[in-house]
Design a protein around this nucleic acid. Structure first.
Lengths: 124, 124
DNA sequence: CATCAATATTGACGTTCATCAATATTTTAT
DNA sequence: ATAAAATATTGATGAACGTCAATATTGATG
């Protein structure tokens, strides 16, 4: 249930020692989200009634130029966080929920063995 | 840089429209994690038997200079992701699990009503 | 084909930030 | 008190990147 191809990237960060290449991959994904404009784009898209939005719907509420919005959408798309679909002259963007689940799993903190538990373990 | 409460900040990003200030707060937190060196620091600390590590334990496995490691730890501490405790000449760093839970919640994707569900809703 | 609208790309500029060497500060041990 | 070890700070440098104006591309329409 919890395992799946969508969760391939980014095993739990904090459960076992992460390798440099995986750290780079995960960091790149997090860096994409580390931008207020991109978070607002995601939030705006996610809260549309249809769960999707085109560029022209996003420019004005964010107060950013059209090239800037296009740039951010491209970055989000490149990170797999958005999918795009052209319909006529418009391009609609939609969230890729599995991609967010990947992140949630990577950031899950395993139970740290309590002091007592560790002492008990040593006695066994 | 203020550590702040581990529990403040960041309602679900994708459930309701995020406000600019909250986007900035959440982005700042994600930006802290968007760095491979910092992810590796977190992973290394989390996987220590005692769940903690001092600077001198982290410099060598990461291949970074001591000032750089201290810098990253300060950033992580400032973001509330690490807590620090001085014991003698050493300073031990430990994860703050609730802070990661905050992130996991912020990144949770609500169920997008399916097309059929929306059509049904419109008929009611 | 010509024109308009939506989106994407290019190039430039300024800011942010990771990194290190050098140095300062703090704590322990003699 | 002096020295040594651990950690933190400072200052400098180079790279990454957000932003926009200008321009290119793509699709629809007459």
């Amino acid at each position: 249930m919890t395992a799946g191809s969508a969760l391939e990237c980014c095993a739990p960060l904090l459960a076992k020692a992460i390798q440099p290449e995986e750290a780079e991959r995960l960091a790149a994904l997090l860096r994409v989200l580390g931008e207020p404009a991109r978070l607002r784009l995601l939030s705006t898209i996610a809260t549309q009634p249809e769960g999707e939005a085109c560029v022209c719907q996003l420019t004005e509420p964010l107060g950013l130029s059209q090239p800037t919005v296009s740039h951010h959408l491209k970055v989000l798309y490149g990170a797999g966080l958005l999918e795009r679909e052209r319909r006529g002259a418009w391009v609609y963007y939609r969230l890729v929920p599995t991609r967010f689940e990947v992140l949630r799993q990577a950031l899950s903190v395993p139970d740290v063995p309590s002091c007592e538990a560790r002492i008990t373990a040593e006695l066994v």
